[in-house]
Amino acid sequence: MTPRIVVTEDDFDLGSEADMLEQGPDTGAVVTFTGRVRDVAGGLRHMVIEHYPGMTERALTDMATQAATRWPLSGVTIIHRHGTLAPGQRIMMVGTASRHREAAFEAASFLMDYLKSRAPFWKKEVTGDGADWVAARDSDEDALDRWRS
């Protein structure tokens, strides 16, 4: 299983990404999660996402490989955008495919928890009041604990 890792400024097509994960006669379950830019207090004009080219791809590939070690996956897709994104636009997606739903759900959840605090992306919110970097939340770091057992 070779994970599909995409780091891009461009939008992606959720349908064709799900189709790709559905390939294979043993794939009984496909889970996809999509993250979107939501509005914030004060009115969000846009979000700017910065990343660390090189390390980003390595970190995402490493997460996908770890997930495939822990669960019997027939497919993993991680797509994350960077650059300037407007409210309502897609930021990222994680997709997992497996024989059964438990593995697909758990692997998707694992990947999201790691993406939040271990993939080198930084979000900046631009509102009418100015621009501010989004602060990391302790709860995102705590979320990793449940995968450490």
Binding site: G35, Y52, G54, M55, R58, H80, I91, M92, M112, L115, K116, S117, R118, A119, P120, F121, W122, K123, W133, V134, A135, A136, E141
Partner: peptide, 26 residues
């Protein structure tokens, strides 16, 4: 060299060091 490390890590033969705030992906 694109791997997260603690501040007490020796630089060794590293070619690249990066500094950044806690990550906010997803």
């Amino acid at each position: 060299d694109q791997e997260l490390v603690e501040f007490d890590t020796p630089l060794g033969q590293a070619r690249e060091v990066a500094f950044f705030p806690p990550m906010t992906g997803g």
